[in-house]
Simulated assay, not measured.
Amino acid sequence: MSRPVTVVTGGSRGIGAATCLRLAADGHDVAVGYVRDEAAARAVADGVREAGGSAVAVRVDTAVEADVERLFEVAQERLGPVTGLVNNAAVTGPLGRFTDAATETLRRVVDVNLMGVLLCSRRAAQLMTERGGGVIVNVSSGAATLGSPGEYVHYAATKAAVDALTVGLAKELGPDGVRVNAVAPGAIDTEMHAAMGDPDRAFRMADSIPLRRPGRAEEIAAAIAWLMSADASYTTGAVLRVAGGR
């Protein structure tokens, strides 16, 4: 049987990079989507190859429709028919109160975290329904239900929208053989916290987490990999919280 071909957005670092490597270990060929760091994306692609898979790194701004179209075109040309999508690319902007958030920050967060997921999901759904099957996993956030007051309410709002998309799209695409689920991470030790301006944030949150520690990117990748796998063949429309109990 041919290997599954999975597109992972935001695949050059953090949860995305860990997901690419885990999927490769599970037998996937992977298209590594990235927006800036070509060297990091190529390193992840090399890791996929070392795990026995084929890989291609593709620069893509998921908020740009033409970029999304090219991402899937390159994936299919280089790897074969796309059978899976992990919508991982996301931005937060600086931590702070909503009233202080710049308009350009709000627009970029919505464009990447929601519009990007919509564009990628639509293209994947078009391809998957034509072939009669496929899997989409969205990376949401515990913020979708906690709201993240004083930190990034706008980010939380986009992730709540991703949860709604997950449920609705699962119902719409189920008859076409396409499963759609989401993973909602909590505080995970990745580079995202530094990008927000608070590199130690995940560890400072440990006291508020029942397991008393931040999560690791590999732990989220494991949940994504399960949802992508045949073991989850009867799971669709689920939002799986992987947040240490928070």
Score class of each variant (00 low, 15 high):
216 R>L: 14
54 S>L: 12
50 E>N: 11
76 Q>H: 11
39 A>E: 15
240 L>H: 09
67 D>L: 07
26 D>Q: 09
150 G>Q: 01
198 D>T: 08
232 A>S: 05
167 V>R: 15
125 A>R: 03
18 A>S: 12
57 A>S: 13
22 R>Y: 01
165 L>K: 08
96 G>I: 02
198 D>F: 07
175 P>T: 02
240 L>V: 11
212 R>N: 14
142 G>R: 13
239 V>R: 00
82 V>Y: 03
19 T>C: 00
162 V>R: 07
98 F>M: 12
83 T>S: 14
202 A>D: 06
3 R>G: 02
183 V>D: 07
126 Q>W: 10
77 E>M: 04
134 G>L: 01
206 A>Q: 13
170 A>K: 05
159 K>M: 03
2 S>P: 15
143 A>Q: 05
64 V>S: 09
121 S>A: 10
191 E>M: 08
163 D>L: 09
68 V>C: 01
57 A>N: 10
183 V>F: 00
140 S>I: 06
4 P>F: 02
31 A>V: 10
128 M>L: 01
115 M>W: 14
36 R>W: 06
54 S>Q: 15
157 A>Y: 05
126 Q>T: 11
99 T>W: 10
127 L>Y: 09
40 A>V: 09
176 D>C: 12
44 V>T: 05
48 V>E: 09
137 V>Q: 07
105 T>I: 08
120 C>Q: 01
23 L>R: 06
171 K>Y: 09
220 I>F: 05
36 R>E: 02
132 G>Q: 03
175 P>N: 06
102 A>R: 15
45 A>T: 04
166 T>W: 01
7 V>N: 05
180 V>Y: 06
195 A>S: 14
69 E>T: 12
68 V>M: 06
63 A>R: 13
122 R>G: 05
238 A>M: 11
11 G>Q: 03
19 T>Y: 03
135 V>L: 07
46 D>A: 14
12 S>N: 15
2 S>A: 13
57 A>V: 07
88 N>Y: 01
24 A>H: 05
242 V>F: 00
124 A>H: 07
206 A>K: 09
118 L>C: 11
244 G>N: 07
169 L>G: 05
69 E>G: 10
67 D>V: 06
170 A>Q: 05
66 A>L: 04
227 L>T: 04
75 A>S: 08
239 V>A: 00
93 G>W: 07
108 R>G: 02
153 V>H: 07
41 A>K: 02
203 F>R: 15
173 L>K: 10
28 H>Q: 08
229 S>V: 06
38 E>W: 05
217 A>L: 08
213 R>A: 03
67 D>N: 10
108 R>M: 08
81 P>C: 03
171 K>T: 14
197 G>T: 03
99 T>C: 12
194 A>K: 08
23 L>I: 01
29 D>P: 01
1 M>C: 09
234 Y>M: 11
164 A>E: 06
59 R>P: 07
32 V>T: 01
199 P>V: 01
146 L>M: 12
194 A>L: 02
78 R>G: 02
245 G>K: 07
179 R>M: 02
148 S>D: 15
54 S>I: 01
68 V>E: 14
160 A>Q: 00
161 A>P: 00
175 P>H: 04
140 S>W: 05
207 D>I: 10
17 A>M: 04
245 G>N: 01
90 A>N: 08
30 V>K: 00
242 V>W: 00
142 G>E: 14
45 A>N: 11
209 I>N: 09
239 V>G: 04
127 L>W: 09
221 A>N: 06
86 V>M: 02
46 D>R: 13
148 S>R: 09
246 R>E: 15
